[in-house]
Design a binder for these strands. Structure first.
Length: 119
DNA sequence: CATATGACGATAT
DNA sequence: AATATCGCCATAT
């Protein structure tokens, strides 16, 4: 069949790919708050895809103007390897009021933001 | 199609 | 407590 027939339908361009949902969620992280790779993945519909969240950011955060620095790991620590952009991320967060303790750990009980609603 | 690679997370040593 | 291993799964090659 071809596109001029009545029942023709274009293939779904992008149904709702994981990466799109991840980016949408990250865009909503409030200033001065952080969330984790795992929570983002879970809220995007795949609780086991935390690694992909990191991969997606590494690949296209800057390009999409996402607040990539507001994403940390489950332990409240920056996951960027030393010498890459770890210090940058810390600076950006501190500028927003996020506090790191002497070990470079953020108190998630204070600063974590939950994608799934409840503040 | 087969491997390799992670800005993770949970468990085992 | 610190390190190693394993499960996961989207991209890369």
């Amino acid at each position: 069949m071809n596109r001029h027939q009545p029942n023709f339908s274009m293939p779904d361009p992008l149904p709702d790919p994981f990466s799109r949902r991840v980016k949408r969620i990250i865009r909503r992280i409030p200033r001065g708050r952080v969330t984790t790779y795992g929570m983002i993945a879970a809220d995007a519909g795949n609780p086991r895809a935390a690694r992909q969240v990191g991969w997606i950011l590494h690949a296209s955060a800057r390009k999409h103007g996402l607040p990539w620095h507001r994403v940390v790991n489950r332990n409240g620590r920056v996951s960027v390897r030393r010498g890459d952009g770890d210090d940058i991320q810390k600076q950006l967060l501190e500028k927003e009021g996020v506090v790191f303790d002497e070990n470079g750990v953020i108190d998630l009980a204070v600063f974590a933001w939950f994608p799934s609603g409840l503040t």
